[in-house]
């Protein structure tokens, strides 16, 4: 499902964030991308989400080469992905339900069906009873769970998460972990960029280790 081949990412200032990185992730697989701060984890996340393009090499996601993807096709690719950001990127002027409804309004789902699906997603992450609350009133863990609900409401087959447990206490991080596990169990492919070693220990999943932009380890 994901094929990264000889990818290099160089920024205009000359910083080389990734150097000749190659890996493949199969459908239904769960993989962690780990490494110290500045290792290139977030760059991989941004490249897989088509937020940035590689300087060289190719990235194939869902059969599409992202390096050659035309600009107008990017939104349609993103609709097939579930993106979870470190800073959640919630809309604080909308309540919990409206945040989750946003991806469904983008694909033009009829309102009644959209609300039904949004509530199901909120139920999945344990926030159904807080659907009318503004995100600012949620704890950090709840905000991250809301971000997950928004990411999965379109039923993507691939979930990409960038440091989803950063700044969370261990209990909240554990809840997030359980939610990811449940998605993995139903066949969703997960790619999680994290520096949190305790996560990997709780999963017998594949770990891709980055250091200074190079892939230095790929093991289960």
């Amino acid at each position: 499902m994901i094929s990264v081949s000889a990818v290099t990412k160089r920024y205009p200032q000359g910083l080389e964030a990734l150097k000749d990185v190659s890996f493949e992730i199969e459908d239904g697989e769960m993989a962690f991308i780990t490494g110290h701060s500045g290792a290139g984890k977030s760059t991989v996340f941004r490249l897989l989400a088509a937020i940035e393009r590689p300087t060289s090499g190719s990235i194939v996601v869902d059969g599409q080469n992202l390096a050659a993807l035309r600009r107008g096709a990017i939104p349609y690719l993103r609709r097939k992905l579930g993106l979870i950001f470190q800073d959640q990127k919630l809309l604080f002027d909308r309540n919990v339900l409206d945040n989750v409804l946003l991806p469904l309004s983008i694909v033009g789902l009829p309102a009644r069906e959209a609300v039904r699906r949004a509530r199901a997603a909120l139920d999945k992450v344990g926030l159904l009873e807080r659907e009318r609350v503004q995100p600012i009133a949620l704890s950090g863990g709840e905000q991250q769970r809301l971000a997950i609900a928004r990411a999965v409401v379109n039923r993507p087959s691939l979930l990409l998460a960038d440091e989803p447990t950063a700044n969370l206490d261990s209990e909240s991080a554990s809840q997030i972990l359980d939610i990811f596990r449940s998605f993995h169990q139903v066949g969703v492919t997960l790619v999680i960029a994290t520096h949190d070693a305790q996560w990997m220990a709780r999963f017998s999943s594949r770990v891709l280790r980055l250091e200074r932009g190079r892939l230095i380890g790929d093991n289960t």
């Binding site: 993103r78 993106l83 990127k89 946003l102 990411a151």
Partner: peptide
Amino acid sequence: EIEVSRLIGAT
């Protein structure tokens, strides 16, 4: 809102 919408697939 524009940034988030773009990130989650808005044309």
